[in-house]
């Protein structure tokens, strides 16, 4: 996966999570499945998508929430 694709995936993920804040709680696996569909033509693997997710979390653009199960969300102060 090139840095460019990764950036694209990250933006897509962030957009998706932000759009659905308060409406749907995405588990990481939901996102992986969504992105696999979204980027099917570019042959992205699960591991690629997980790597993008990890980046987002290391940069604290995404954080974990918990409500009976873990999910991803944007930090509260945003």
């Amino acid at each position: 996966m090139t840095d460019e694709t990764k950036k694209k995936v990250e933006d897509k993920i962030l957009g998706l999570v932000t759009e659905y804040v308060g409406k749907k709680r995405f588990k990481p696996i939901d996102i992986v499945k969504e992105m696999e569909k979204e980027f099917a033509s570019e042959g992205l693997t699960k591991d690629d998508i997980k790597a993008a997710l990890k980046d987002l979390m290391d940069e604290e653009k995404l954080v974990y929430g918990y409500a009976g199960g873990s999910f991803l969300t944007v930090p509260e102060n945003k």
């Binding site: 308060g22 409406k23 749907k24 709680r25 409500a67 009976g68 199960g69």
Partner: peptide, 8 residues
């Protein structure tokens, strides 16, 4: 309404 996701 603010805290919970209804389907889950």
């Amino acid at each position: 309404r603010n805290l919970c996701e209804i389907p889950s």
